[in-house]
């Protein structure tokens, strides 16, 4: 039941974010689509929040470290009730609250302004330390791109989280194996990635990042009391759900033309029927 709901919401997010990108004439569809199932699982099941009180001290926090994937983030936030769905149509327009990278001073539900890579995890570690000091029970989730793990600041933060045993903290790696221009392993290899996190004092789990059943199982476990931070390596495909975008570095940026957009929507229709 829960997985069906997540699946339905993820399909809606994919349509919505493609519509935003087509309307705006720019965007990052590849990374948006690889992150969609993860964000759908978080926002439509796991996270505890009240969109009417986005600053409530006890809320669960989600930090979008891969801040360029605003198509996925904004569709999730709108779907979760932080702002009207119709506002998604203003994506990237002059004076829109929906900037190309998320801005917390514009938009409720955004915890910190990201965009430059390597910023989200340090901030999330700080939030988790605040929870540790207060013995509060809210949880902190971060989604990072895999290429982003080439930023040194991520490992500064990972080291501290391991050292302090931040059990409130879960980082999810969107492991689509592509960065902007090429494969991660051809650029500056991340493997053995799980071993790296373990060496920094983290528990590590791997999951199919497009399977809501598996994601729910892992994220439910992430919510249990823990004494160490958890890294979930979510194996994903960039562009997931749109056949011609899948696993193609060229769709990091990009806008589908009319025929491509029609095909994408048809594929998403078919997925919903199946």
């Amino acid at each position: 039941m829960r997985a069906d709901h997540v699946r339905e919401r993820a399909n809606w997010m994919r349509r919505r974010l493609l519509a935003m990108i087509v309307e705006a004439g720019q965007g990052h569809p590849g990374g948006d689509l690889s992150a969609t199932d993860i964000l759908a699982t978080l926002y439509f099941d796991i996270l505890r929040f009240d969109p009417a009180q986005p600053q409530a001290p006890g809320r669960d926090r989600f930090v979008m470290s891969k801040g360029h994937c605003t198509g996925a983030l904004y569709s999730a936030l709108a779907g979760a009730g932080f702002f009207p769905e119709a506002e998604l149509d203003t994506y990237l327009r002059p004076e829109s609250r929906l900037n190309g990278h998320p801005n917390r001073t514009y938009l409720p539900g955004v915890e910190t302004n990201t965009g430059p890579l390597g910023h989200g995890l340090p901030v999330a570690v700080g939030i988790a330390i605040a929870a540790q000091i207060d013995q509060a029970d809210y949880r902190v989730f971060v989604l990072t791109g895999d290429g982003e793990l080439q930023e040194g600041s991520m490992w500064e933060a990972a080291m501290l989280a391991g050292h302090r045993g931040l059990g409130q903290l879960t980082v999810i790696v969107d492991r689509n194996r592509l960065q902007q221009g090429a494969r991660t392993e051809d650029t500056n290899a991340l493997e053995p990635l799980a071993d790296k996190w373990r060496a920094f004092g983290w528990d590590v789990a791997e999951v199919n990042g497009h399977d809501p059943v598996a994601l729910l199982q892992r994220l439910d476990a992430a919510c249990l009391p823990r004494s160490r931070p958890l890294c979930i390596i979510a194996n994903t495909r960039k562009g997931k759900g749109v056949s011609f975008m899948e696993d193609q570095a060229g769709w990091h940026h990009g806008v589908p033309n009319a025929a491509q957009y029609a095909q994408a929507l048809a594929e998403l229709d078919a997925e919903l029927v199946a």
Binding site: V123, G126, A130
Partner: peptide, 24 residues
């Protein structure tokens, strides 16, 4: 209430922003 991040200034400032998010 003393958080020593070690020799890591980028993380130090990011952690500061996170602590502020957590009400500190």
């Amino acid at each position: 209430r003393l958080v020593n991040v070690g020799i890591a200034e980028q993380n130090m400032v990011g952690v500061g922003a996170g602590l502020a998010n957590g009400g500190k």
